[in-house]
Design a protein around this nucleic acid. Sequence first.
DNA 1: GCAAAGATTTGCT
DNA 2: GCAAATCTTTGCC
Length: 224
Amino acid sequence: MTIYPRHLLALASDAAAQRLIGARVTRGSGPNARSGRIVEVEAYFGRDDLASHARFGRTKRNAVMFGIPGVAYVYLVYGMYNCLNVVAEVEGQAAAILIRAVEPVSGIAEMRAARLDTALQRAVRNGREAADAARRRIEVMADARLAAGPGLVCDALSIDRRDDGHDLCDPDSDLRLELPGDERLPPAVAGRRIGIDYAPEPWRSGAWRFYVASSPSLSAGPAA
DNA sequence: GCAAAGATTTGCT
DNA sequence: GCAAATCTTTGCC
């Protein structure tokens, strides 16, 4: 498996997002490495995109969006879930691609264990019964659903804000993007982005979410 | 300094 | 189908 070439991300954010479908996100190396096939992404543009974090200009949080392509932009949403983005376009031009869902390929048992870890941490506040319920739910969950959402991708691959700013196109990186050799996937379909109804048109309805319609691992977002 | 809302997920009515 | 959980970041006083 070769590393994902950085130049494929130095494109307009939507073009880079479409090409990212089918690529792998990999955590770790060796027999316990966790890897998943990207099946759902969303493209976010720079200052003009009123649904993008870059709409406020450069801030402490979104600084890496303005940097070189291929770097991870990781942020916390709703005080609870991490979201993984891949920086796109050229340096100085803010853009990022949100990884919304991946189909587990290897290290599936490790992904499930990681999901269990984070779920138990959250459930423990609500008592032992809630923790037991969470445990049972994740133990019987289908492999394909382990990373079927932006927050779940990060839970399954143990991604948090410590990964913010790390280079995903470095073959020695613990968290990286890889390009499978000759894998054929059905073409990606385009739809509106999820969870940005606060944005005005055309940003609200623009078709900048791309996904493999037949994948069993899509996020539970509206009409995915 | 303080109030408000968010690129989500889960559980309950 | 709806609302809570939870905390960082942003916006306004």
